[in-house]
Design a protein around this nucleic acid. Sequence first.
DNA 1: GTGTGGTGCACC
DNA 2: CTTCAGG
DNA 3: CCTGAAGGTGCACCACAC
Length: 593
Amino acid sequence: MSTFPCRPRSAFDVLMSNAYESRTRKRKAPVEISQTSNFTVKKSDSNPIGGAHVKNSQVKISPDESLVELKKKAANFDVKRAVYWGEGEKVPFMFVVKAFDALLKESGRIAITEIVCNMLRTVIETTPGDLLAVVCLLANRIASPHQGLELGLGDASIMEALAGACGADVNRIKKQYTDLGDLGLVAKASRSSQPLMHKPEALTVAKVFDTFQLIAKESGRDSQRKKKNHIKALLVAATDSEPQYLIRLLQTKLRIGLAERTLLTALGHAAVYSEKHSSPPGNVDNPLEEAAKIVKQVYSVIPVYDKMVPALLSGGVWNLPKTCRCSPGIPVVLMLAKAAKGVSKVLEKFQNMEFTCEYKYDGERAQIHFMENGSVEIYSRNAERNTGKFPDVVAAVTRLKKPCIKSFVLDCELVAYDREKQKILPFQVRTSCKLGFLLLTRARKNVVMNGIKVDVCIYAFDILYVNGQELLQERLDVRREHLYKSFREEQGFFQFATSITSNDPKEIEQFFDDAVNSSSEGLMMKTLKKAATYEPSKRSNNWLKLKKDYMDRYSDTISPDVWFEPTEVWEVKVADLTIHPVHRAAIGIVDPD
DNA sequence: GTGTGGTGCACC
DNA sequence: CTTCAGG
DNA sequence: CCTGAAGGTGCACCACAC
């Protein structure tokens, strides 16, 4: 047990305080996510996860021997034979790099999951303070999307940094990249040209992760140069395969066959193996599966590692649904719909179930959060913070929520709207001969109300949270009642998605045509009662989408007489293009109608 | 300061 | 957003 | 079913030149 100058701070304390801070900061503002330095983890009995003490007297294990252990089946895996750093030391970057290499060569998901699970067990049981950084590297994320922290590096900048670090010409690097097809391999093959007085200290996961944070936070004058210098510093200290994965991480192209879902599964499994002080609820017969499910579920509601990882460490996996809860200000991962090819297919899938049909509006998906303190946040489909783009939407929800509504999370589509003609503007609008994207072209930041050229109407179709109450587990018909009674509609500002509840194919076909005629893409068909909860992050069968595109491309009446196999490409020089009003070749490609 | 080009990135 | 290939 | 890649447009941001 280590001593502390003042109150002992556990890894958890540190992580939590930073997690809170990062959540409350504004987009693009500096965010502290992991400060994993200068403290030793305090082990206490209140911490349900953890346990393996690493004795410095232990026989030295090499990274490669450690990897052999990591590849073992979870049941035969022994943390003590995988860990090769001492108590109080940080997880070496080499530890994850070796695992990356192993994962790269492995294609089976079961095996991938086991390797990751073993890695995570090792970290949890020896160096829990580094768990967040390890998880973030495995996920290849430096922050959650809504925190707005990005590296701001593309291949071009990375290649410049690489060239600088190994004293090579950028063009040579570019050429090598083209030849090898992997910038990581180029980095691995390039020897640093920098004469070094001392062998630099081995990279740690924490060091790499913290440097990534620094890179992301650099902005303004000379920021590009500073970013490159950070990269160079890492490359200089990197050995073996480390440069390869540093570069791939910076490119966000890890390509090791480990996607986030698999990582979450492994995290759930690892938590079960490392759980020391609490056991699964009695009714669980497959704890591994159950834990994986919990982690995935919780992460889809709170997709923020710096909230989930500390909660997992402190309260254990079985308490995670209680310790890590949905709240306005943190975007819930959206529920997605599966594509259906025709009304008959939908009826097939929904037989014996009540369902509803809604217009599928053609705009931008948005999740609007209203906090108790009256502030509003708008998140995009990918949980990017969009608030600065839609001050008009912020004003509209604030004005049109019922006075008794103090907080909510709303799922909706933001649609370009012509308030004079009182109709939806098509998502794609013709400007001369080019297709313009009305909403896409709106400025993304600091939009002021007066400057808005294209108005937006909110089409609300779901509510996930209202007045402190989580509605995700409620049926759609119940959620919709909450939605209807929480807002006041106003033409062109805030409307509920047009819907019918019917299982008559004729009626649905008609409704589909109405939708398309009023500039919608088609229909969304959703179960109302049975299998009708909101399933965050799932492309669920509860929601089906029916679009013209999915049905067959041309009408029977004016179908082309002859189709040609494309065999040649002609380049035609023209002054202008006009869409033909009658002939329908390339319909939906050149013009929607 | 202002304009331009390169780069990164998010949207459908 | 879509599509597709490969496992 | 999962993973990874690709496709095309326009805003934001930075570097650089004037």
